[in-house]
């Protein structure tokens, strides 16, 4: 059974069809990319997959369960991690606190009573887990820095680390390279690869940066005008003339 399964999703806004019968699957541990021109419906599909939008037709299953009526925190508990194109970091908190909060949320701690008997302070184990993720992401030196003073690239990594600490089965990333420069983009690609390799997390990546996409993903979906144009192993898909004409243009 695929980890995430979307079956013939259709969505229209008013009279405009944004998605027409789109299928998409993600197997456990797989690294899948989703690309397409602007206005092709990537964001719409992404939001349908997350259950933020309700498709007019078709359904989305994650680990066999329908996501559409589930609030976001419940989806997270089920093992669906995500990052945001527009940052959603916890301003004012340090990187370490981001990781700690995510860790505690996963272990379902958060009772008032626990705080009152003094269990609120971070334990050595919790610190160790935060530091391990910090190391994986190359954020070790920045753990005690308030997130507001990080560069965009680092802040995106913090969001990623926060999601990783909830031990998701699937990570959904919305244009993680947006606004990053070359160095930062390549670093992001490296981190994503190691997250997938070391933690066995499946990743679904929506991205414009074809260099990054071809570097990290093993399978690719191409969306155009609300329909799935192509899917298959990344190199073949990117080399396909139809895809090149529709999306890539003259850039290889």
């Amino acid at each position: 059974m695929p980890l995430l399964a979307a079956e013939s999703i259709s969505k229209h806004f008013g009279g405009i069809a944004a998605l027409v019968g789109v299928d998409l699957n993600v197997e456990p541990g797989e690294f899948v990319g989703l690309v397409g021109p602007n206005g092709a419906g990537k964001t719409t599909l992404f939001n349908c997959l997350l259950g933020i939008l309700k498709p007019n037709r078709g359904r989305v299953f994650f680990r066999g369960r329908d996501l559409s009526r589930m609030p976001m925190h419940a989806r997270a508990r089920l093992g669906l991690g995500r990052t945001f194109q527009r940052l959603e970091v916890f301003s004012g908190m340090t990187v370490r606190d981001h990781f700690l909060v995510a860790d505690r949320s996963r272990r379902k701690k958060g009772g008032l009573f626990g705080d009152l008997v003094g269990q609120g302070t971070p334990t050595r184990r919790e610190d160790a887990r935060a530091e391990a993720v910090g190391e994986l992401l190359g954020l070790t030196e920045l753990l005690d820095v308030p997130v507001d003073s990080l560069s965009l690239g680092h802040a995106r990594l913090v969001e990623l680390g926060r999601a990783v600490l909830t031990e998701p089965k699937l990570l959904m990333l919305d244009e993680p390279s947006s606004g990053l420069d070359r160095v930062e983009t390549m670093e992001m690609a490296r981190v994503l690869q190691s997250v997938q390799a070391e933690r066995g997390t499946a990743i679904l990546l929506v991205e414009h940066d074809l260099e990054m996409v071809s570097l990290v993903t093993s399978r690719l979906y191409v969306l155009e005008f609300g329909e799935m144009l192509a899917t298959g192993p990344t190199p073949q898909v990117l080399a396909h003339p139809v895809v090149r004409r529709a999306y890539v243009g003259d850039v290889a």
């Binding site: 602007n38 194109q85 947006s178 414009h208 999306y247 243009g249 850039v251």
Partner: peptide, 10 residues
């Protein structure tokens, strides 16, 4: 060109 498809960037 931020967030635009390569073909549109051109």
């Amino acid at each position: 060109s931020l967030g635009l498809a390569p073909i549109i960037v051109d």
